[in-house]
């Protein structure tokens, strides 16, 4: 099980900010593909953070991870 967090327009599109994902894919890339397919959203320009650290698509995932999908930021 991993915890997924969705922000900004992603949270609105999916209708949930936080989702418990029962399957643990091997990599971030695989998770992105699964999430895109499940919710019909595009994660093309979305950055990913695992346990609050930015990671690349090749990064491995483990049970208990918190994965945040981070659309282009616009603070300041």
């Amino acid at each position: 099980m991993i915890r997924l967090l969705f922000f900004a327009h992603l949270g609105e599109q999916i209708g949930e900010r936080e989702v418990m994902w029962p399957h643990v894919p091997e990599t971030v890339k695989q998770l992105k593909d699964e999430v895109e397919e499940r919710y019909g959203v595009s994660l093309g320009r979305v950055m990913t953070a695992v346990n609050e650290e930015y990671v690349r698509d090749e990064a491995p995932l483990h049970a208990g991870d918190t994965v945040a999908f981070i659309p282009p930021v616009s603070g300041g």
Binding site: F7, A8, A49, Y54, A68, I70, P71, V73, S74, G75, G76
Partner: peptide, 8 residues
Amino acid sequence: IKQIVPIW
């Protein structure tokens, strides 16, 4: 901030 801080 405009590059790396997760704020929208």
